[in-house]
Simulated assay, not measured.
Amino acid sequence: MTRAAPRKTKPALSQRFQALDMLATLVAVVDPAGHVQFVNNALEDAIGLSRRSITGVPLTDWFTAPELLQNALQGASENEYAVIRYDAHLKRLNHEPLSVHVVLAQSDVPGELVVELLPLEQQARQEREERLIDQAQANKELIRNLAHEIKNPLGGIRGAAQLLQMELDSRELVEYTQVIIHEADRLQTLVDRLLAPHRRAQVVGDVNIHEVCERVRALILAEFPRGLKVVRDYDISIPEFRGDREQLIQAVLNIAHNAAHALKDRIAAGDAELVFRSRVQRQVTFGKRRYRLALELHVIDNGPGVPDEIKDRIFYPLVSGRDGGSGLGLTLAQTFVQQHHGLIECDSEPGRTDFKLLIPLP
């Protein structure tokens, strides 16, 4: 007697849709009548209820204008549209409704529809982050190519000036060749700084972000010993993570140094303040990815703010808001943080400038 082959069972919904929990956007899978079959973690967090509580409930109950979703479900079920998009407001427990962009599409499984909700504020933030990432990548290529183009003829100019100087008897003419050599060396130093982040391999080890902040604090106070108050606001529960300690010190130092220079008038008045604030963020999204935990380090000053004319360009190379600045500090800081899969954002207004470093945690 032969034994019948075991019948293949349909995988559980939670297993089939497990990948949806990795998405930053809010996603629900519903039947043609709109009853919830599955919601991902992001939608759970947004509504404020567990997956178990939401499953089986009409998704339309969670919208301020349920008839819009009902009409969309009907149109999708009757194959009138492949994809339906519209703006709506999602209800949330103990919070104001959330403005979302709704995208409704048929699943590849008959009788299933996928509803994706893109928070409009989050969508704008993601677009801003994408611009920062694209900008940093473009800066990286521009800097690398430009530096190499400058470096080769620069060596020739310096060498020619040295040879010429050896043939000159006039002291006045020698001074001219020394100017050429000095300026060539200055440009060489600038080129080396531009290429530095791309030349040196990361030295990865365990990093305590508060040790990084304390090192930067000591350096800033050594340069500005009077008139500047540096405030620590640390979350000591933040775990260590793998990274390049020296790169992160340089990134934070570049931001803090810029802030201290922007505070020169307040330092003279004796009321300048610089704040290092560390926090842990859970289920945070940046750089198109969702992370369970992330370090959020703020460097906040009470200075005049970033000038309006360069607000959108502060991470561009050679853009500086002060006389004598190289315009490389923030560019290098962004590069170092991105090498840790992170991102730097800036929010500035007169009296308060906040640079926020986001770095994923294990």
Rank of each mutant, 00 (worst) to 15 (best):
R3Y: 14
A4L: 15
A24S: 14
A28M: 04
P32R: 11
F38V: 05
N41G: 14
L43F: 03
S50A: 12
T60F: 07
A65N: 14
L69T: 01
L69P: 03
L69W: 04
L73F: 04
G75Y: 04
N79A: 12
E80I: 10
I84N: 00
L93E: 12
E96Y: 09
S99H: 12
V100T: 00
V103K: 07
L104T: 02
E116A: 11
L120P: 00
R125Q: 15
Q126K: 10
E127G: 02
E130W: 13
Q135I: 08
L146T: 13
H148G: 14
L154R: 01
R171N: 14
V174Q: 15
V179H: 12
D192Q: 11
P197H: 09
V204W: 03
P239N: 01
R242V: 07
R242G: 10
A256H: 07
L263S: 06
K264N: 10
A272R: 08
V284M: 05
F286A: 03
G287A: 06
G287L: 03
R292Y: 08
E296K: 14
E296F: 04
V299K: 09
G305H: 05
V306R: 02
R313H: 13
I314C: 00
S320G: 15
D323E: 15
G329S: 14
L330I: 09
L330H: 06
A333S: 08
A333Y: 00
Q334F: 03
Q338L: 06
Q339Y: 00
H341L: 10
I344V: 15
S348W: 02
S348Q: 09
G351T: 08
K356P: 06
L357G: 02
I359R: 10
